[in-house]
Amino acid sequence: MDRPFVTRFAPSPTGRLHKGHAFSALTAYQTAKDANGRFILRIEDIDPTRCRPEYEDGIYEDLRWLGLDWEEPVRRQSDHLADYAAAVDALRERGLVYRCFRTRKEILDGIGHAPHGSADAVRPGPHSPDEEAELLASGKAYAWRLSLDRAHEALGGAAWEALSFYEEGTGSDGESGWVKARPETAGDVVLSRKDAGTAYHLAAVHDDALQGISHVIRGVDLVEATHIQRLIQALFDWPAPVYRHHRLMTGPDGRRYAKRDGSVTLKSLRESGTTATDIRAEAGFGA
Rank of each mutant, 00 (worst) to 15 (best):
R52Y: 06
G212H: 02
W238A: 10
D208I: 08
E282N: 12
E93A: 11
P252A: 15
H18E: 15
S118I: 01
V205C: 04
H127L: 13
G177S: 12
E168R: 13
A276D: 07
R99Q: 07
H245E: 14
L68F: 11
A143P: 05
Y200H: 05
L26K: 07
R123T: 08
T274D: 02
R94I: 10
H227Y: 03
G177V: 07
A181Q: 00
G95T: 01
A162D: 06
R102C: 13
D253I: 09
Y257P: 09
D195E: 12
A32N: 08
E131F: 04
K180G: 14
G273T: 13
E61F: 10
T226Q: 00
A121C: 04
E71H: 10
A258F: 04
S164Q: 05
V179C: 02
D237S: 14
L163C: 00
G171P: 02
H80S: 14
T250K: 13
E167G: 13
Y84G: 03
R92A: 15
Q77H: 08
Y98F: 14
R218M: 06
A114Y: 02
L210F: 12
R92E: 11
E54T: 11
Q229H: 04
K180R: 06
H21T: 13
I232R: 02
S214K: 01
A28T: 10
R64V: 13
S78G: 10
R230L: 12
R150K: 07
Q211N: 06
L81P: 03
G157V: 15
H116D: 14
A158I: 11
W144S: 14
I43L: 05
S118C: 08
D2A: 11
E72Y: 09
V242H: 12
P124F: 03
D83R: 13
E134K: 12
T250V: 15
D195A: 05
K140F: 01
D173Q: 14
A143S: 14
W70H: 09
D195V: 02
I232K: 01
A119D: 10
G254D: 11
E167H: 08
Q77L: 03
P129Q: 01
A225H: 09
L135T: 10
P73E: 10
H215R: 04
Y60K: 00
D89K: 07
D47V: 05
L135F: 10
G139N: 03
Y200Q: 05
D89L: 13
F23W: 08
F9T: 01
W178N: 09
R42L: 04
A258D: 12
D47Q: 07
E71W: 02
S263Q: 10
G58F: 00
Y98T: 04
S268R: 10
L191P: 06
V97K: 01
P73T: 14
L91W: 01
R230W: 08
I40Q: 03
D2L: 11
T27R: 06
A281Q: 12
D208V: 11
R94M: 12
V189N: 07
D130I: 15
R270G: 15
L202K: 04
A154F: 06
R256E: 15
H127D: 15
R218Q: 10
G110M: 03
S78R: 02
G273V: 05
R94C: 11
T14E: 06
E161I: 13
I279P: 00
I217Q: 02
L266M: 09
G197E: 13
A87T: 09
A204M: 11
F236P: 05
A234V: 01
T198C: 12
F236L: 02
G212P: 09
D195N: 07
